[in-house]
Amino acid sequence: MSAAPILAAFRQSLGEAWAGGAGALLPLGFLGGAAVLVPLGIGSDGDTLKAVGPGIIWVALALASLVTLERIFQADAEDGTLDLWLQAGAPVSAIAAAKTLAHWLSAGLPLALFSPLLALMFQAEASLALLSHVALYALGSLAFFFWGGVGAALSATVRRGGLLISLIALPLFVPTAIFGAIAMSGGPGSSGAPLFLAASTLFACAVAPYAMAAALRLAAD
C-alpha cells in the first residue's frame, strides 16, 4: 500500500470543489445570507443579537456544511470514479477521509475564517476572543464535514439525497454543537468545553472514515 492514491484523491477533490461549485464562495454566500436573515427575523436589539450570535453561527455552519456535501460522493458514483477509487489499492476509508478533508479545506475552513465578520455583525466586541472562536469553529466544522460525509456516502446513489444527508448527519452534529456553544458562552464549564469539542472532533475523524468506506462499498455493490 502506498499513499499515492490517497494524495491523488485529495488533489482531485480539491480541484473539483473549485471547478464545480465555485469553491468556498457558495457556502460563504449561504452562511452570510443565513446570518443576515437572523437580525431581520428577531429584531435589531444589540443585547439579543450578542446573546444569540455564536449559536446562530454554529447553526449556519452546520447547515452550510450539509449544503456543500451533497455531491461529494454522489458525483463519483454517477460518473464511475467511485469504481476506480474502490480498486485503487488504498484503504477506502483513507480515500474517503482524504476527499472529506479536501472539501473541508475548500469549504469548511473558509467558513470558520469568515466567522469573525459575522460575529461583529452580531454586535460582538472586536477582541482576541473572536480569533479563538475561529479555532473553535474550524475544529467544529471538521466534525460537521466528517459526519456529513457519512450521510453523503450513505446517500451516494440516492437521487436528491440532500435531505437524507441532513437526516443522518444532524443528530451526529449534536455533541459538536453543544460543546461549541458552551465553549463560547463564557458560563460555567466554558473552560473545559474546547477540550470536549476537540475530543468529539477527533472521534468523528476516527470513526467516520470507516462508516464512509462501508457505505461506499455498499453504494458500488
Partner: peptide
C-alpha cells in the same frame, strides 16, 4: 466500465495524469 470515470471539468490529459499519480 461503461461509466468512464471522467469528471465533467477534467481534461483527458488531467485524467491520465491523475491516475498515473494514483497508481504511482
Amino acid at each position: 466500465g461503461h461509466r468512464e470515470g471522467l469528471k465533467p471539468q477534467e481534461t483527458p490529459r488531467e485524467h491520465l495524469k491523475l491516475w498515473a499519480q494514483a497508481w504511482g
